[in-house]
């Protein structure tokens, strides 16, 4: 753990200004991931800018019938907000699949997007890791990679994004609002996180001086046919081996619209528009789901310990789409998979 300056931002403009003034600064809100990273010497911020007093804790209706979620809304409050439970149960379910009640009470909406990977090597500063130390090499590709990615990997990094909430947000076509020196912009969720390529040190496309202020949910919540299924090594409080968010709109037995996002398999929540569009108009039956799963995984590549993830992902996709189609979403309380 290094020594750092600590300051408090008085408003969003001040936060942006402080961040722009110190290239080594980090924002801190819940701190559920950042503090661990600092203790391990993985993050060495020169300054922590406390943003917890910014007015970003509200949840409001948007003009088009969607919801605007302030970046500082705690994960627990978001999961149990009546509007979320009623209109966006997929998001409710995904949040409850992650972490523990104590962590969800601390963690914020904006911070959840910025969680860093749980790759063993990223956390151990004695080992090479391109994400932590660009150019040092990836220890996971030929090492312990049971938890690692099978889609969108590069020769430089096979880490996964650890969030559950983000998988649901990706499926729901959320947008990320960010403010920087150049003003506010709205980023499509699919464009927020990035694939590792040859710069795995960057998890997102957020600019250095930008702060996330809110997440916007479009009106469509898929509250009838949805499911979030998380497969992990114990029944709670573990990162996903594979997680699937499925949302369907079904008319007369045919799929009118399909959303499918995967967690635990890539450097970002994984959406596949081609696989989704293949489902459009198809009957909501197992054969369609199997085809979609095969399509999503057509370019999947594994690295030894994580070979099983491809088949596991295939089965999980089919199961989750089936749960969604049947209107029997996976319960996060009862751990039986139906």
């Amino acid at each position: 753990m290094n020594n750092f300056e600590f300051s408090r931002a008085s408003d969003v403009a001040d936060a942006v200004r402080q961040m722009a003034a110190d290239p080594g600064a980090k924002f801190v809100a819940g701190g559920t991931n950042l503090i661990d990273l600092i203790k391990e010497g993985v993050a060495r911020p020169s300054r922590l800018i406390d943003i917890t007093r910014l007015p970003l804790g509200r949840l409001d209706e948007t003009g088009d019938g969607g919801l605007r979620i302030g970046a500082l809304v705690p994960n627990s409050d978001l999961a149990y907000h009546p509007q979320i439970e009623k209109r966006y149960p997929l998001l409710h379910s995904a949040i409850l699949a992650g972490a523990s009640p104590q962590l969800r009470n601390m963690a914020t909406t904006g911070g959840n997007l910025l969680q860093r990977t749980r790759c063993f090597y990223f956390y151990d500063t004695t080992t090479p890791c391109n994400k932590r130390e660009p150019g040092s090499g990836c220890s996971a590709i030929d090492g312990l990679n049971r938890m690692h990615a099978i889609l969108g990997t590069s020769e430089h990094c096979i880490a996964t994004h650890p969030s559950d909430m983000c998988v649901a947000l990706a499926a729901l076509d959320a947008r990320v609002l960010a403010t920087g020196r150049d003003g506010e912009r709205s980023i499509a969720f699919a464009d927020f996180h990035r694939l590792p390529g040859d710069t795995p040190q960057f998890d997102t496309n957020l600019k250095k001086d930008e702060i996330i202020t809110a997440i916007e949910l479009p009106p469509k919540g898929f509250a009838t046919n949805y499911s979030y299924l998380k497969i992990r090594d114990r029944l709670s409080y573990a990162f996903a081996l594979v997680a699937v968010a499925a949302a369907l709109e079904i008319e007369n037995g045919a799929i009118k619209e399909a959303r499918l996002a995967l967690g635990g398999v890539a450097h970002k929540p994984w959406r596949d528009r081609q696989a989704e569009s293949q489902l459009h108009g198809a009957p909501a039956i197992r054969e369609s789901f199997v085809r979609a799963a095969d399509n999503v995984l057509r370019d999947a590549r594994s690295f030894g310990h994580n070979d099983f993830k491809i088949e596991l992902a295939r089965r999980a996709i089919v199961r989750t789409l089936t749960q969604a189609a049947n209107g029997t979403p996976q319960s996060q309380g009862d751990k039986r998979i139906r």
């Binding site: 749980r118 063993f120 151990d124 080992t127 220890s139 312990l144 114990r234 709670s236 409080y237 573990a238």
Partner: peptide
Amino acid sequence: DNRFGRFMTHNLADYHVPVNA
């Protein structure tokens, strides 16, 4: 990881013990 001769799952997020569930 035998290349480093080192235990790699050295925290309670990576080393799993049963939880209530």
